[in-house]
Design a protein around this nucleic acid. Sequence first.
DNA 1: GCCTTAACCTACTTTCGGTAAGTTACCCGG
DNA 2: CCGGGTAACTTACCGAAAGTAGGTTAAGGC
Lengths: 202, 202
Amino acid sequence: MSTATPRRRRMSRAERERQMLDVAEQVFAEHGYRATSMDEIADRCGVSKPMLYEYFGSKDGLFHAAMARSKAELYETTQKAMAGATTPQDILRRGMLAYFEFVDSHSGSFTMLLAAPLTVPPESAGLVEETRQQQSALITGVLKSFAPDAPEVMLESFTEIIIGGCERLALWRTRHPDRISVEDAASHMSEFCWQGLSPYAP
Amino acid sequence: MSTATPRRRRMSRAERERQMLDVAEQVFAEHGYRATSMDEIADRCGVSKPMLYEYFGSKDGLFHAAMARSKAELYETTQKAMAGATTPQDILRRGMLAYFEFVDSHSGSFTMLLAAPLTVPPESAGLVEETRQQQSALITGVLKSFAPDAPEVMLESFTEIIIGGCERLALWRTRHPDRISVEDAASHMSEFCWQGLSPYAP
DNA sequence: GCCTTAACCTACTTTCGGTAAGTTACCCGG
DNA sequence: CCGGGTAACTTACCGAAAGTAGGTTAAGGC
């Protein structure tokens, strides 16, 4: 009879925006970008469509904002995880562990960030790329400290390979979560990388 | 004044379907899935929209069909390339070379296949995955022949890493074609893989 | 030469992103 | 306590593009 939420409440802009992003993230992850309608998000927020447009400008804008939040979260998480480490191996392994754990516990965000990316054409595709750039920069740095003599282009290539490998392995894990643990995934990944780099290590 | 094509010709179904797929592949690659309208494809085919629906059922259906064709082409190409080789290293290297060459010369198909995937929600996303499965099966086979004692789950993990790494490196190449040649990309990739696998080789 | 059939078209409905123009509730100074 | 200004919110609409119903024309077989 009565709606679960006591009755439609008036919220401050900041509060409403956060709620909208929460809902959007969930719905986008549920149906994918295309199959998600602004009306549905508005409904689930208990608000009418023009409010979404007032705050986020467009469907792309809303998606973009939701992704930006997830991106920041992922970056913060991995960076923090790497902070405590000392050796390059340890840095990379911790970063990867944090990455796989993030994917494990935020499968919604991850789906939205990586598994359903170019869904949205110009702007947000860029955001996905930026997310990767951030991770790339972290990785290239580590590689460089480990193999300072390797040519730049090779380090960059390896970085791309690692990024792609991580995403793919993480995606595989979302489909077969029982096949391999988060820790093992991170271990395989970093082991694989070090072996691959070994010819260039001092 | 007069249209370039002599005048609108009546074509057989098979002929028209092929043409539609050609046009669709190009237009989808140009604007991305979302920004492509069925009207535009129909126009460029010199035909009206209902014909597209008659033959492919829906926008998704058309996209799906175009992807299926590219997928088959990629598979055939890589498989053929691997056929002539003898050692596992050689097989993998040739396969990767074929892959990077395919991407290089069919950037349209590739963009459609890999760079803009989940654009289309349920059905065709599956096709992209199937494409990867095909490549995965090829690769896992090679890895197994090289490191028969490694646990199955590890081979599969490595396969995922390799697939992801290849895609990522190929995508990077499309943005920086001058940084690295097709051959070098394939070399780095396979070298990286062999090193990574070396602990498990007999 | 007719007649079936398959290629093709015009003209429409529906859905959904996006917007214009207003209405209501909350807060704050007097 | 009260009025008024602002910001949260709504209804009612537009236009573009996906998808469809039903009719028309040209090619090929007998």
